[in-house]
Amino acid sequence: MRVSACSLRALALSAMAIACSAGAAGAASYTESVDGDLSGVAASPTPWALGVGANPLTGTAGTNFNTGAGDYDLVSFTLPAGLRLDSITVTNYQNVDPFALAFFGLQAGTPWLDGFGFNITGTFLMGWAHLDSSMGGVDLLAKIQDHANDPPFAIPLSSGTYTLLIQDIDTTFDYTLTFNASAVPEPSSLALAAVGAIAGARIGVRRRAVVRCE
């Protein structure tokens, strides 16, 4: 059976549409000054559902050097089925002390099972990272993987719930972390996309053949 060029073109477009349709929920954002202070309670981290695209998290954390009051930020972010986390970009980081090191710890699941401040054991962590003022624009997820427990976790992160601790034991800092999530193509979509790509190639070959014959 011969398939027309128009039919092949329609098949290619349908394949691309299906491949891109997974996880269509839009990206989310959380800003402490608008949405409320992130929880510092181990039993109840602030829940946050991510969507496809760039999901910015903006807040302030750390310890007031003069009073000793600590502001620990705990966010339990969820990647729905069909999504994966590709990176966490440090979009903004401003510490009152340019030489201070902020601490970020990542754990699978919720609630938070480790400690705070000097009392972090690392037993329940997937990994951790320190950031200073020179590290704007880096991928925090990759830096956390550099200090992962054995065996190290894989990037991208698969769907599920994870808890991130954000803290500094000496100073306070402002931050924006952008969680970059993407859809995981369904196996059937991948197959159809491949068919569409082949169909597109056949259309191109046929067009070139027609041009040569004219």
Rank of each mutant, 00 (worst) to 15 (best):
T161Y: 10
G122Q: 10
N149H: 12
I144A: 02
Q167E: 14
H130S: 10
G137H: 06
S133G: 09
P151W: 11
S159K: 10
I169E: 13
D139F: 03
T163G: 10
S158L: 11
S182Y: 02
A154S: 14
S134Q: 02
T176V: 01
S134H: 02
T178L: 10
D150I: 14
G136C: 05
A142Q: 12
A142M: 05
M135Q: 06
T161A: 04
Y175Q: 09
P152F: 14
T176M: 09
I166P: 07
P156N: 10
L125Y: 04
G137P: 00
G137L: 01
D168F: 02
Q167I: 08
P152H: 15
L125P: 05
I144N: 06
N149G: 15
P151Y: 07
T163D: 04
T178P: 12
D170W: 15
L125F: 02
S134V: 01
L164H: 13
N180Q: 15
A148Y: 01
F179C: 07
T178F: 02
A181W: 14
Q167F: 13
G122L: 07
T171K: 14
P151D: 11
M135H: 01
S158I: 15
G127W: 07
G127C: 05
T163A: 03
G137R: 08
L157M: 13
T178W: 13
G137S: 11
A154H: 02
W128S: 14
I144K: 04
Y162F: 09
D146L: 12
T178G: 12
L165Y: 01
D168M: 08
S182Q: 06
A154G: 04
G160R: 06
D132K: 01
T171C: 08
D174R: 00
L140T: 05
L164D: 12
W128V: 05
P156G: 12
G137Q: 07
Q145V: 03
L131V: 00
D174Y: 07
D139Q: 02
L157G: 02
L177Y: 09
N149W: 03
L131G: 00
H130Y: 13
L141E: 06
Y162S: 01
